[in-house]
Amino acid sequence: MTEPIIEFRNVSKHFGALKVLDEVDLQIHRGEVVVLVGPSGSGKSTLLRCINGLEKITGGDLIVNGMSVLGGNKVMREIRQEAGMVFQQFNLFPQMTALENVAFGPREVRGLSRKDARDLARELLAKVGLADKANHEPMELSGGQQQRVAIARALAIKPRVMLFDEPTSALDPELKQEVLNVMRALAAEGMTMVVVTHEMGFAKQVGTRLIFMEHGKIAVDGTPRDVIDNPPNDRMKDFLQHV
């Protein structure tokens, strides 16, 4: 097997005295779509945020595309260019149009010319079905549209991995699908993805792997269909009944 693109080596994360990740070992390979589930506070967001350094690990080591998150600021910025992130609250830059939101990264991070950055942004907005919204400001877009712009913004830096932290949790049910469809298309293109979500339908249909977290540990790791249809332990069974 090839080298994993993300490798947790005995990773711990503490907030003060609170241990949020407890000696996690995990390897994620290219092309995997890993769905991360678990009760509130089990450490899903933290695990995701350690990958792109929004949280600093306090024990072990974490390798992303061959680079350690402990490698300092410059390495961290390179890691972030390999791992795009999509947030629950979209977090679009409110002073910029949809197009500018997407073009900003390529221009300021990848050093593309203004024109090339805008061309790329237009292409990506078209890809998420928002070609006609390029000149709208975030406030003028629905939640689902904002989240699709956010996905385009993350894709614009040409990451090898996409991290999603509950990308549809803030959306009305009828808007969730448009975002999930974009994610489905991404997975179909072979994008490596790590997705924290409560959408079990999506997990079964798109996920290649499902991880159930509990108290900062990986409690279950298997194929989505297997572990959703036959939860290997009672706590997961219980959890699945409540989502």
């Binding site: 609250q89 977090n91 990264g105």
Partner: peptide, 26 residues
């Protein structure tokens, strides 16, 4: 919102650019 800073950092911007171009103007 802290989320905007995180979104800026997450696309690989150095912190000073996040302050200069995103948080600063707002």
């Amino acid at each position: 919102s802290k989320g905007l800073t995180e979104a800026g950092l997450a696309i690989g911007l150095p912190r000073w650019k996040v302050i200069r171009y995103i948080v600063g103007p707002l």
